[in-house]
Amino acid sequence: MIKVNDLKFTYPGNDQLTLTGLSFEVEEGEVFGFLGPSGAGKSTTQKILIGILKNFQGDVSVNNQNLKSLNSDFYEHIGVAFETPNLYSKFTALENLNFFSNFYAGTTRDPRELLAAVGLEQDGNTRVSDFSKGMKVRLNFCRSLLHDPRLIFLDEPTAGLDPVNLRKMESLILAEKARGKTVCITTHDMHVADTLCDRVAFIVDGHVSLIDAPRELKLQHGERNLEVEYREGEALKKDAFSMDEVGGDARFQEILRQHYIETIHSREASLEDVFVKTTGRNLA
């Protein structure tokens, strides 16, 4: 769906490359995440992929179209939700959606159904200026899906959402994937990347430092250890055991039998641990 080879980009007036040679591919039907601290080049990469930034070096093709020769029909099959919601504030949610859907030649989805899917069915006739930040984010998501695009770009899709709506958004994104869509997400939220993405790319200093499935990364970079926390009298003690030998480990058996166990965890790494370990950077 997306093929990027040795992508380089410099903002005018900058001496340094913002993107120093990215290469990656996104397969059809997968949810692909760009992870990285702010300023690493995630947004720049996305702006290139959606045709906003032009003067880049390298080969980029999106939806089988070379980005060097792009026309506006490209956008018939691409949906974009920017991080900051972008809608006419003096118009209602439905007016905004109807307006945008008229730009597409193909069949479009029913704005009311989309609103209902994100829990805004009651708010279709409310002006966007009266929406909360979270409502705008959800409406913005609806806008990107209006024309049923094959490829969807979401920039920080969960920013500003409360836990309930966060869940809802996650399941909506997975629903699009189930319908065979390809989804590209930029985020610095490891939890989102972990639950949603089939594969993630770590972007640091303008290049991709690692691409893999979150689960693989966590297993590869974790230790095959088991950590037990237990009480010995008043004191809280902690002990670690190799997972390969834990079955016959006498000390482990003894703890299980004789002490009050508070927690037992396998020590695979969190995605955040992997990020810090492989890039030497923090995400914030």
Binding site: I50, G51, I52, S72, D73, Y75, E76, I78, V80, F82, T84, P85, N86, L87, Y88, S89, F100, F103, Y104, A105, R143
Partner: peptide
């Protein structure tokens, strides 16, 4: 300012 311009130009609008 309301970021409408950028969303207009990721539609087929010329």
């Amino acid at each position: 300012g309301q970021n409408i311009t950028e969303s207009l130009f990721v539609t087929p609008l010329r």
